[in-house]
Simulated scan of single mutants.
Amino acid sequence: MTSTVWLSLVSATLVISLTPGAGAVNTMSNSLTVGWRRSIWGIIGQQLALLVHVIIVAAGVGVLVTSSPPLLTGIRYAGAAYLAYLGIRLIVTKTKATTDDGATTISNSTGSAFGMLRRGLWVNLLNPKAIVFFLAFIPQFIRPDEPLLPQYALLTVTVVCVDVLVMWGFFASAAKPFRRYVSTPRGQRVLNIVFGSLFLAVAVLLLFIH
């Protein structure tokens, strides 16, 4: 991969990562509830999903998925249902006192490292648009006449690094000014409703926009 192609890849990935979606909502929600530093666990989960998507496309499974409307529809419904579940769960979550660093205490392991990692994984994994997107995106930066493994490795590292920087450096950081609102039960409640509603909105978009 030439430097020009790589810079094009970085630019394209940056634009894509900055586009608001379920991953951004999940990252900002985590940053508000558990703090900026610990929100990295949800971001790691989202990156694991990206790795799976790249592998799916590289293995040719993506073509099978996109060529099977019932399978793609099933994944789309599952993704929308999961996002709706996250939204409703956040809305009905009982607010609790904040910790010394201002992070909100969440019950049912929602704020645990494993819980955030798992949630981030499923948020990105159950997004059929990601498979379709990578199917159209990856071939533009892969030359079949050159060794494939180094190209896929560089592409994967680039996509993951850029997305981590955007999610943690932009979206998670963007939530910091609102941290003062989680210091009161009322503020926590309002933010839970806001982000729960955002999850529901993304679920509706995923379900009805083809």
Rank of each mutant, 00 (worst) to 15 (best):
A80G: 12
S183V: 11
S197P: 02
V92I: 05
G196L: 01
L86P: 00
L205T: 10
T104P: 02
T98Q: 10
I91Q: 11
R143I: 04
A136K: 15
C161W: 10
S112Y: 08
L72Y: 12
P69K: 04
R89M: 11
P69F: 13
L83Q: 00
T95H: 15
S112C: 06
Q140L: 08
E146T: 06
L121A: 01
V132R: 08
G169H: 11
Y85W: 11
V160S: 03
R76H: 09
P185F: 15
G111E: 03
A203F: 01
Y152M: 12
I75V: 10
F195K: 02
L90V: 01
R118T: 12
L86S: 01
D101I: 09
W168Q: 13
R119T: 04
T105A: 10
A130Q: 09
L72F: 09
T66L: 13
I88Q: 04
L126M: 12
P70K: 15
I106A: 09
V190H: 07
G169M: 05
V182H: 01
S67I: 07
L90P: 00
I88S: 09
V190N: 03
L206N: 03
F171K: 06
S173Y: 12
T158F: 11
Q188D: 05
S183M: 07
L90S: 03
F171Q: 04
G102M: 12
T95N: 11
T95W: 15
F199K: 00
F141P: 02
V92R: 14
A80C: 10
L117M: 08
I131A: 13
V92Q: 14
M167Q: 11
S68F: 15
L191P: 00
G102H: 04
F141Y: 09
R76D: 10
L191C: 01
V160N: 08
L121G: 00
Y82R: 05
R179A: 10
L90H: 02
W122Q: 01
A81D: 12
S183H: 14
L86T: 00
V204P: 00
A130G: 11
N108A: 07
Y152C: 05
L117F: 04
P144R: 13
V194I: 09
R179Y: 13
K129R: 14
G196T: 01
R189K: 10
G102E: 07
L154I: 10
L200G: 00
V182Q: 03
A84R: 12
L191F: 02
L165N: 03
L198G: 04
